[in-house]
Nucleic acid binder design. Structure first.
Length: 330
DNA sequence: TCCCGGGGAAATTTTACCTCA
DNA sequence: TATGAGGTAAAATTTCCCCGG
């Protein structure tokens, strides 16, 4: 991501541990969970809520208000809490008073046929239950032929256009089917439509929209992961830059030369693990920096250390170098 | 190789419903 | 309490593209 040679023999190399792969076609299972994401979220820190997180959270919170069937990351159960709604109106079963309209629309071909003019929703709140009652009445009266609307043809078109909310049961069955396979062949579509008393076109549209929502959620998850990755790398970069600055200050410090290491310090290459006699500058580079920013004096190895081969002076912080630049002065 | 129809993806529109001032 | 504006999710439509026959 970023490489920098600052003259101290330090190379800053910031690379994301993972390579971002362009999104493949959305694979089954379609439900978005942390496990289904392409990225190992558990390997990442948990930064504060990002924009994306806030956005998604806002969306999800809003959906809670609506009490609509939706999918939530890490929440495969679509109907987690028992609903207390009193009654569910099947939007695809027209009220008795709308039979005339049904008769009118029944002339259409399958896809153009409107299964119900009733637009009420399956509700969870008492408030909405009341609305259902009211709307059911309103619908049944407004769609009656006796209403005498001048929309004889246009009325049909409007009715065909009328959007219908699927009932909870219908949506649940669709969700279950979608979990098994996110696309339907014509046979499955017809069977499902028959089972749910929907038009095949409705089932098809529902699956299309559901795939779109799945993909959108997956995109949001991916975006969130990448943002976290970016945050982590930014923090790492900041830390390394600070370290570089400290080392630069160290190099320019007069005390750096005063505390010059004896010329026979042993250093070990972290790549080949060969121990070599390092130059004074290299040894100084590997000196540790105290909290004050000043170098600690290097000490000569004791006899014990020498005999037991325990003195490997800070070889572990000798910076990694590219292979082709290996041992430039060895 | 071109044409055609079916199906999916993406973009967009429409509708229903909620919250809030 | 009623109402309208604003916002959102979901249903539906339109358009484009790909692929197999």
């Amino acid at each position: 991501m970023a490489e920098k040679d600052d003259g101290l023999g330090l190379t800053l190399s910031l690379k994301c541990s993972e390579t971002y792969h362009p999104p493949p076609p959305p694979p089954p299972p379609p439900t978005v969970t942390a496990a289904s994401t392409r990225f190992p979220l558990n390997l990442l820190p948990s930064p504060p809520l990002s924009f994306v997180q806030r956005h998604v959270s806002s969306h999800l919170n809003h959906q809670n208000h609506h009490q609509k069937l939706s999918f939530v990351i890490n929440q495969p159960d679509l109907n987690p809490e028992p609903r207390s709604y009193q009654r569910v109106i099947d939007v695809n079963r027209p009220p008795a008073s709308t039979s005339t309209l049904v008769a009118l629309t029944a002339e259409r071909d399958d896809d153009a046929f409107v299964s119900s003019p009733n637009s009420t929703v399956s509700s969870v709140s008492g408030k909405r239950v009341e609305r259902e009652d009211n709307e059911a009445e309103r619908e049944s009266s407004s769609h009656g032929i006796s209403g005498g609307e001048d929309e004889d043809d246009g009325g049909d078109a409007a009715a065909a256009r009328k959007k219908l909310r699927l009932s909870k049961d219908q949506a649940a069955v669709l969700e279950e089917t979608f979990k098994e396979h996110n696309t339907l062949n014509p046979k499955q579509k017809l069977a499902l439509a028959k089972q749910l008393d929907l038009r095949p076109r409705q089932v098809e549209v529902w699956f299309q929209n559901r795939r779109a929502r799945t993909k959108l959620k997956q995109t949001e998850v991916d975006c969130e992961y990448l943002k976290r990755c970016c945050d982590t790398l930014t923090e790492e970069n900041r830390r390394l830059q600070k370290e570089v600055n400290e080392l630069r200050a160290l190099k320019l410090s007069p005390q750096f030369y005063m505390n010059m290491n004896p010329p026979t310090t042993l250093t070990m290459c972290p790549q080949c693990e060969r121990v070599a006699v390092s130059s004074s500058s290299a040894a100084a580079t590997s000196s540790t920096v105290g909290s004050t920013g000043l170098p600690k004096p290097l000490s000569m190895p004791s006899n014990h250390q020498k005999q037991n081969n325990l003195f490997l002076p800070r070889a572990s912080i000798i910076p990694h170098r590219p292979v082709d630049a290996h041992h430039p002065r060895w």
